[in-house]
Design a protein around this nucleic acid. Structure first.
Length: 569
RNA sequence: GAUUCAGUAGCUCAGCUGGUAGAGCACAUCCCUUUUAAGGAUGGGGUCCAGGGUUCGAACCCCUGCUGAAUCACCA
């Protein structure tokens, strides 16, 4: 089961044994007493200061009896200087001549003790007095090089390889690491904002008997000892509201959700949402809260509320524009949805060249019109408010218009990044809405819920205070904050088709090769065309077979005058 | 799901009209004590994604498949 090794991999394996012969353990167990990071050295530079650092060798530049190398640690890179006579004071120059020059490779982890100096070219450098191999790399890293102008050569850029081998991507591409540092800063900033507001971080089940709180196809699994199906969560809404029923004033959760749907550059089967529910508030309050939150987060991540996404410059500075869905549709189509019947809406949609079908109800039709004609126009953060009741089964009816709900979505660069309600807390209304969804589902609307969560309804019957809830797509938000158009760039390990690690056949012969070989082994030597005819192989199959047999040094083709002869070796 | 493009050395990529597979970096050996995309000399390294077809001959043309990307469709 060994994969075929490249020449470079074999060389590194040989170095491993040579190191062991010299008594050097290439994978020592000892703690290494690091006391500086590369950026600390550069920021608090003091001539001759003694430092102990560790990291990967990312560039080696040997010049005879002295050498330079780049050591990369978690904070960046620092140049280190190996001088033969500094490193090896006595007669024995093995550590420099053999261990450093011959047995170390790019990618190896080394620990270094040394003191600081500045080279003639002005680069802050660690003069190595002692080095320790901490871990040998057997596989060569793809090492891009960058010149003085910042042009990168041999970049490790193939997305497939970068996603599959994120460890190599992170090692070699500092800008990739930066995206994930920002991702974590975003989570921290949001968490701090909520905690300072006095809200409570909680955890709710990922394995659920009913996947509710959203309309999406769930992943199904099975619990053996209960012998029941379980679903992986598609949203955490219904569980968080149960906690508001239980008496918390504000609860929030960063929730990994799972949806068994299509994948593309903005959809991964598992993604992270944040949902927060706050008692005694409504969606107007939540809009204020949301714009404060996002301004805070943008500044925490990028140091400014401004951000660039592709061709767009966006600014998360509060307050954001607020437009009702009805007004938005009037603005972009001239059509007023107020009071229109399902048939009128369907006719209007058709006249706008929007694809519609009979399963679409009023809500869905309005949503299609909005999605098609309006959504994409909102580049700066904008709240779209007051959605039709039919498409918001968990949202409280609008206090001023019973056909609407108290709901808003926050649009940025034409995409939805947040969704919020004045939460429905009337248990009887809630049951009716669920039943309405069941009817829609039966009618064929695949976005309508198929189950009624009776336990959730029971919770509401005990009484839930008026509550406003907000959900934010964290992946999408971090895409906007780091200027990445692809969700795969902001997930460490985006979902991909499994890689095929099947081992190569090695010295075994393929079928074609066997046919040729079996005939030839009896005759020992044959004229080429006779042999070819006897095998009955096509030209292509013959060609491949005889070529690879030659490569394996099992046969040899010789030409005497005009006659080609094949011999067995 | 549809369309288009791509897959060649460890990495980034050339490869003309079908005619023995190339470069830079990396690697190996040697020279070089403050360099920085270090430099100089020499050398090794390939299942041209896989399978089939056409052809005297295929990395190249045709078909099928695999993998990925982009655009579109789908996706609160």
């Amino acid at each position: 089961m060994s994969l075929q090794l490249s020449e470079q991999e074999l060389v590194r394996r040989e170095k491993l044994t040579k190191l062991r012969v010299l008594g050097i353990n290439p994978y020592p167990a000892d703690l290494f007493p690091v006391n500086h990071l590369s950026d600390e050295i550069k920021n608090n530079y003091k001539e001759d200061k003694k430092v102990i650092i560790a990291g990967r060798l990312m560039a080696i530049n040997i010049q005879g009896k002295a050498s330079f190398a780049q050591l990369q640690d978690s904070a960046g890179r620092i140049q280190v200087y190996f001088n033969r006579d500094v490193l090896c004071e006595g007669e024995d120059k093995t550590m420099y001549n053999d261990v450093f020059k011959k047995l170390l490779d790019l990618g190896d982890f080394v620990g270094i003790e040394g003191d600081l100096f500045t080279t003639q070219v002005g680069e802050k450098t660690v003069r190595v007095t002692k080095f320790t191999l901490l871990s040998k790399a057997l596989k060569p890293l793809p090492v891009p090089k960058t010149d003085r102008e910042g042009n990168t050569y041999d970049g490790f850029t193939d997305p497939e390889m970068r996603y599959r081998q994120r460890y190599a991507d992170l090692t070699v591409n500092p800008h990739v690491k930066e995206v994930f540092v920002k991702r974590t800063k975003l989570f921290t900033a949001m968490r701090n904002f909520f905690n300072e507001a006095g809200y409570f971080e909680v955890e709710t089940p990922i394995l659920q008997p009913i996947a509710g709180g959203a309309a999406a196809r769930p992943f199904m699994t099975h619990h053996n000892s209960l012998d029941i199906p379980l679903y992986m969560r598609i949203a955490n809404e219904l569980y968080l509201k149960r906690l508001i029923v239980g008496g918390f004033d504000g609860v929030y959760e960063f929730s990994k959700n799972f949806r068994n749907e299509g994948m593309d550059r903005t959809h991964n089967p598992e993604f992270t949402a944040m949902e927060i529910y706050v008692a005694y508030k409504d969606y107007n309050w939540m809009m204020d809260f949301t714009e404060q939150l996002l301004e805070h987060c943008a500044i925490a991540v990028n140091g400014t509320s401004k951000s660039t996404f592709g061709e767009h410059k966006i600014d998360f500075k509060a307050p954001y524009k607020r437009v009702t869905m009805r007004q938005s549709i009037i603005d972009f189509t001239g059509f007023d949805i107020k009071g229109k019947t399902e048939d009128e809406l369907r006719a209007a949609a058709k006249s706008m060249n929007i694809e519609v079908n009979d399963t679409m109800g009023v809500g869905k039709l309005i949503d299609e019109i909005f999605g098609e004609k309006c959504e994409g126009n909102y580049i700066q953060p904008t709240f779209i408010t007051d959605y039709p009741k039919e498409m918001s089964p968990l949202c409280k009816e609008h206090r001023g218009d019973p056909s609407l709900t108290e709901r808003f979505e926050l649009m940025v660069c034409g995409k939805e990044i947040a969704n919020a309600y004045s939460e429905l807390n009337d248990p009887i209304d809630q049951r009716e809405r669920f039943e309405e969804q069941l009817k829609l589902a039966a009618k064929g609307d695949d976005e309508a819920g198929e189950f009624i969560d009776n336990d959730f309804l029971r919770a509401l019957e005990y009484g839930m205070p008026p509550t406003s809830g907000l959900g934010i797509g964290m992946d999408r938000l971090i895409m906007f904050l780091t200027n990445n158009p692809s969700i795969q760039e902001v997930l460490f390990f985006p979902q991909m088709k499994p890689e095929n690690f099947e081992t190569k056949k090695g010295p075994e012969l393929s079928d074609n090769e066997k046919v040729i070989y079996d005939i030839l082994i009896k005759e020992k030597s044959m004229e080429l065309n006779t042999l070819k005819e006897q095998t009955g192989l096509s030209n292509k199959q013959w060609d491949k077979g005889i070529k690879s047999l030659g490569k394996l040094e099992l046969t040899k083709v010789t030409k005497t005058d005009d006659v080609l002869t094949v011999d067995i070796l």
